[in-house]
């Protein structure tokens, strides 16, 4: 009898403890935002080519299940082939070379608040006096909860 009562005390305590915080505050968001560069008008795409001394328009469709956060763009050289893209398709690379004046762009692109989907379209000027060659076009997108999606495209600057 004594054992039984002890055992039941244990079970009751376990039950109490396991019920301590069942105060569900609704489902949490566990979904990463998406960067879509597959649409027809999206630019650049994997292996795209842009020209020095000219402007191009960065276009991509951004979306999230709840709310988009912020967008950052980073263009850096890959003359040493130190990284590869995040994409399936490989692009042909020029031979490894020493950078002299590589193009570097680190830019935040504002996204209007409260959106689930946003078509980004922003002009980027490529200076005329930079090294041509292989570059990475890194897109970093967060949503409001802090999930980040990274897309690293290989591009060429001619």
């Amino acid at each position: 009898m004594k054992k039984l009562s002890l055992l039941s005390i244990c079970l009751v305590l376990m039950a109490v403890l396991s019920n301590c915080s069942k105060d569900n505050t609704g489902p949490i968001d566990t979904i990463y935002p998406e960067i879509n560069t597959a649409t027809n008008d999206a630019f650049p795409k994997q292996c795209s080519i842009v020209k020095r001394g000219e402007k191009f328009t960065f276009k991509a469709l951004l979306s999230d299940n709840v709310q988009l956060g912020s967008l950052n763009l980073d263009i850096h050289h890959n003359f040493d082939h130190h990284t590869h893209s995040t994409e399936l398709e490989e692009c042909s690379l020029a031979p490894v070379k020493q950078p002299a004046k590589p193009f570097l762009l680190i830019k935040n692109i504002p996204i209007p608040t409260g959106l689930k989907s946003y078509q980004v379209s922003t002009e980027i000027e490529v200076p005329a006096n930079i090294d041509p060659g292989d570059y990475h076009f890194m897109i970093r997108l967060t949503d409001k909860e802090g999930w980040q999606t990274i897309k690293g495209l290989s591009i060429k600057i001619e």
């Binding site: 305590l13 376990m14 403890l17 396991s18 301590c20 956060g69 912020s70 967008l71 950052n72 763009l73 980073d74 680190i106 830019k107 935040n108 890194m138 970093r140 967060t142 949503d143 409001k144 909860e145 802090g146 999930w147 980040q148």
Partner: peptide
């Protein structure tokens, strides 16, 4: 079983923002 409560757990919180200067474009 155990039950644990932290009034002030120190946590590295990934925010929704990027910093292009100090953070060199990172989240």
């Amino acid at each position: 079983p155990f039950y644990n409560y932290f009034p002030n757990y120190i946590y590295l919180n990934p925010t929704a923002n990027h910093d292009f200067y100090y953070g060199a474009g990172n989240q």
